[in-house]
């Protein structure tokens, strides 16, 4: 199990308002695989005033569990530093949300 595999599982979590997955939105800051059955994730939200954080954390855990049933411990920590900016969005997300000529 690699970090990329975890990110792939997490990218099934879609922000319901904008329809873009949270990995492409740049909300996932860190993925640490401690051992074969434990994962630590650091993620952020675009706004501190948004009440969706717990829902998204639950979804992240659910989607990892779905793909890797042998993982027993998933810790998701909500962090605010560094603050999210649109520079963290992937090119795919930007394209989906109408940015043109982005490299």
């Amino acid at each position: 199990m690699e970090k990329e595999d975890i990110l792939k599982a997490v990218s099934s979590v879609i922000d319901p308002e904008v329809g873009v997955n949270i990995v492409d939105l740049g909300l996932i800051y860190e993925v640490n695989i401690k051992n074969s059955n434990s994962v630590d994730i650091k993620m952020t939200m675009t706004s501190r005033g948004c009440p969706m954080h717990q829902y998204l954390i639950d979804e992240v855990k659910k989607n990892i569990k779905k793909q890797f049933s042998d993982i027993e411990k998933i810790d998701v920590e909500l962090v605010w530093d560094p603050p999210w900016t649109n520079e963290k969005m992937s090119l795919a997300a930007k394209k989906q949300l109408g940015w043109k000529n982005e490299k």
Partner: peptide, 16 residues
Amino acid sequence: DIIRATIKAAGQPRFT
């Protein structure tokens, strides 16, 4: 508003 992009999407984002 972000609806300029999401209106072209499908499902819930378009509905919103």
